[in-house]
């Protein structure tokens, strides 16, 4: 047991280290912007005095290393800075630019929750569905069913997300109005309506991630079917379904859990395009909008959040696969 704890601690440390370096990369990338934030905020027609004042205000006159640690320290405390666009808007309305309204954290928090909701609904649909398909494909391997599933999932994984999204909109929202094509959810919406509006983006993401998980499940099970103990179970006269579910599946769980975690990490990226298509108010849409108007603090913060989620899920996949595999648990 101690060796497991040690391995997990090692991986966690490695993950934190990676995250630290990633934050440096993001910070450096943003600092490669020509000119600086002050110029960007005020636009072309700014007087030198105004630019200088803003530079002081934002602490841009300090050296990059000091600024990096300041940014990191406040980011760790949950303060991700102020959004340019919101600050502009706030000063336009007459409010103070540094109020809560302009803070990136306040802007991101509800959207992050929405994105997690979408990813959660997707996982709830996609994981059982792909396990079911994978087990069936392993059971009836090389049959017409197996081949058809293979071709369909391969096609769905290689199509761009927006193609799948528009096909689903076409058939499930426009031609047969079953689900709404716009996922404009808001904070105090009743749960069932929120779920209905999330269903179409979730189905799109399901199509994207199912193929990988289903193929992995099928391959892991088929790999085991040649082992002697499966032969034994078969000779005892157990039905093929029972052989797979009771004897093969538990031993195939390690690669399956791993691929599930990796695909959840993939969801984080895939969510961007799908959120834009369905106008889903998640963090991905905020990210793309901020990229277009070059709202640097928001872009920086979103990037950091995406990278954190991605690293955490990869870490989980890593740790789970170590725990479920005795050979990795006790390295020689």
């Amino acid at each position: 047991m101690t060796s497991i704890l040690r391995i997990i601690a090692q991986r966690l440390l490695l993950g934190i280290l990676t995250l630290f370096v990633v934050s440096i990369v993001i910070f450096t990338a943003v600092n490669m912007l020509p000119g600086d934030f002050a110029q960007l905020i005020l636009g072309q027609g700014a007087t030198p005095e105004a630019v200088e004042a803003i530079r002081k205000d934002l602490g841009l006159d300090q050296p990059p290393i000091t600024r990096y640690f300041q940014w990191l320290a406040s980011a760790l405390q949950g303060d991700l800075g102020n959004s340019f666009a919101q600050a502009n808007f706030a000063s336009f309305v007459g409010a103070d630019g540094s109020t809560n309204m302009a803070s990136v954290a306040a802007q991101i928090a509800p959207r992050f929750e929405n994105t997690l909701f979408l990813a959660g609904v997707t996982a709830l649909i996609a994981v059982p569905f792909s396990l079911f398909l994978g087990i069936l494909a392993a059971l009836y391997r090389n049959s017409i069913f197996d081949r058809a599933t293979n071709i369909l999932t391969l096609s769905s994984i290689s199509s761009p997300e927006f193609f799948l999204a528009y096909i689903l909109i076409l058939f499930l929202a426009v031609l047969n109005p079953i689900l709404p094509s716009l996922s404009n959810i808001y904070a105090d919406m009743p749960f069932d309506e929120r779920l209905t509006r999330t269903l179409l983006p979730a189905l799109t993401l399901t199509l994207v991630v199912t193929a990988h998980m289903m193929r992995m499940t099928r391959a892991a099970i088929i790999n085991l079917l040649a082992s002697p103990y499966i032969e034994m179970a078969r000779l005892k006269g157990i039905s093929p379904m029972r052989v797979i579910v009771k004897h093969a599946l538990p031993n195939a769980l390690a690669p399956i859990i791993n691929v599930v975690a990796l695909n959840l990490a993939y969801l984080i990226t895939g969510v961007v395009v799908v959120e834009v298509v369905f106008v889903y108010p998640g963090i991905g849409q905020l990210f793309v909008d901020s990229v277009k108007i070059r709202d640097i603090p928001v872009v920086q913060a979103c990037c950091l959040i995406f990278a954190t989620a991605y690293i955490l899920l990869n870490l989980t996949a890593d740790i789970l696969s170590i725990i479920s595999n005795p050979r990795l648990r006790h390295p020689k």
Binding site: T269, V272, V291
Partner: peptide
């Protein structure tokens, strides 16, 4: 390190 950032996100950041 570069692979620890999701590629589409990183591409979008750099495109900004």
């Amino acid at each position: 390190v570069l692979m620890a950032i999701p590629s589409l996100i990183f591409a979008l950041l750099l495109m900004t």
